[in-house]
């Protein structure tokens, strides 16, 4: 126990995002309501966003916007700024997530209109007839 606790504290970002990730995945697989599947999908994607953003944190680093000194020259000390790359990657992934969510909601509206329900078993029942 004495070893496990510091281990969790030092790497709590991975623990948090992985647990969220599996909650989302469980929702996507096990839920019967298609809307809940979409909610699971959003949790799943957000967990990955958190995972990446937490990589970018650097102890003692501020946001990666260069600060200017008194001589109007930027401070170019890399250790003073957080890692910009994960932020850039996640901006892209957020946008992709929004796109997927929009398309999923659209198809769900259509399913509701065609089958009259968004419960998966009822949709399957309707398809079988």
């Amino acid at each position: 126990m004495d070893e496990l606790f510091p281990f969790i504290i030092a790497k709590y970002n991975y623990w948090a995002s992985l647990i969220l990730l599996f909650i989302g995945l469980y929702g996507m697989i096990a839920k019967n309501n298609l809307m809940k599947k979409i909610i699971g999908m959003v949790i799943f994607q957000t967990a990955i966003l958190l995972f990446y953003v937490s990589i970018g944190v650097k102890r003692g680093g501020t946001i990666p916007i260069l600060e200017f000194g008194a001589d109007h020259q930027p401070l170019l000390d890399a250790t003073a700024y957080a890692n910009p790359l994960p932020h850039v990657l996640m901006l892209t992934a957020i946008v992709v997530g929004v796109g997927t969510l929009g398309v999923a909601l659209t198809i769900l509206q259509k399913i509701q209109r065609v089958h009259g329900t968004i419960e998966e078993d009822e949709v399957l029942e309707d398809l079988r007839q």
């Binding site: 996507m28 298609l34 599947k37 999908m41 997927t100 398309v103 999923a104 198809i107 769900l108 259509k110 399913i111 065609v114 089958h115 949709v123 399957l124 398809l127």
Partner: peptide, 11 residues
């Protein structure tokens, strides 16, 4: 039926 098939594909 394409809608449900596509939804599954999407997920």
């Amino acid at each position: 039926p394409a809608y449900y098939a596509t939804f599954k594909y999407l997920v």
